[in-house]
């Protein structure tokens, strides 16, 4: 058997769900040998159990609050379904959970009656992970902000994430879930028995959040709709390179034409820029070092 063929065969076997109807162990002898103590199928099973434990733990560790929203048994089913749909395509386990919020938004059956809140919680938890180890650029100081002109190339801090959510005040529950897991121990799910987030605890309501990092710690900050609109426009499609200030303003004015007059929108713009500068979110549009 050639190397590529063997690797495709074995990885395909490992990715077979543990509760599948046709366990690949029955056919492992076609390419694996028996040992004095173990048959080929038992040898494959060591790797298959290890694979599923590893990827389940990796995703569970990223979403302690989501587990509390959907409940333990359903969360297990959610993990398996997600991992079957999205096996790892990255060299780092850190990226394994990336597609979960979007996937969950399209698969309501895995979240039960709390589906909308579950999607919001997942988005918030993934934003937390991205903000935790994203790059940080030197923020503009007050002097630099005062010198900004229409052609100044700006970008927002790479660790800043902006979220428009349908559920209100879930961030406290998310933070609590993370704290419980941290204090309960290093194993994902160690604090799973605590703090189930019930349906009654989550209210519908538009909510705008900024997720950002200060001195290595990730924080959430509420934004009003106007500020969120400004920041979204500044972030726009220019996250990687940085756009000019005037481009950001134009995007904001274009995208918020229905919301108040020009004066009101300009006032919102000024307030947001001042806040962003104060929080260290404004940076020059330079490439990451």
């Amino acid at each position: 058997m050639m190397l590529l063929e063997l690797q495709r065969r074995m990885l395909g076997d490992l990715l077979e769900p543990l509760e599948g109807k046709q366990p690949p162990e029955a056919r492992a002898g076609e390419y694996m040998t028996d040992s004095a103590r173990l048959e080929a199928g038992e040898r494959l099973a060591i790797y298959r159990r290890s694979y599923w434990a590893r990827v389940r733990d990796a995703v569970a560790e990223d979403y302690p609050a989501l587990r509390r929203v959907v409940g333990g048994p359903r969360f297990g089913e959610l993990l398996d379904a997600y991992l079957q749909a999205h096996p790892s395509r990255s060299w780092t386990l850190r990226n394994l959970s990336r597609a979960l919020p979007e996937w969950l938004a399209a698969h309501a059956q895995f979240a039960g009656r709390n589906w909308r809140a579950a999607v919001d919680v997942a988005r918030l938890e993934w934003a937390y992970i991205e903000s935790f180890d994203a790059a940080s650029l030197a923020p503009l100081d007050a002097e630099a902000v005062a010198r900004l002109g229409p052609e100044s190339r700006l970008r927002l801090q790479p660790h800043l994430r902006l979220l428009a959510l349908e559920s209100s005040h879930i961030e406290e529950r998310v933070l609590a879930a993370h704290r419980e897991d941290l204090s309960a121990g290093p194993k994902p799910g160690a604090g799973a028995g605590q703090g189930r987030i019930g349906r009654g605890e989550i209210r519908r309501g538009r909510r705008y959040l900024a997720v950002h990092r200060v001195a290595g710690v990730v924080y959430y900050r509420s934004l009003d709709a106007g500020m969120f609109g400004v920041l979204r426009a500044l972030q726009g499609g220019e996250m990687e390179e940085g756009g000019t200030l005037v481009e950001g303003v134009e995007r904001f004015l274009q995208s918020n034409r229905q919301q108040g007059g020009v004066e009101a929108r300009m006032e919102s713009l000024r307030e947001t820029l001042a806040l962003a500068a104060q929080l260290g979110w404004l940076c020059m549009g330079e490439s990451l070092s």
């Binding site: 190397l3 495709r8 074995m10 990885l11 694979y51 590893r54």
Partner: peptide, 14 residues
Amino acid sequence: SVDGTYSHDLLPLP
């Protein structure tokens, strides 16, 4: 890994 899919395990070689 094979074909861009990763096991995140140290799998034995033939």
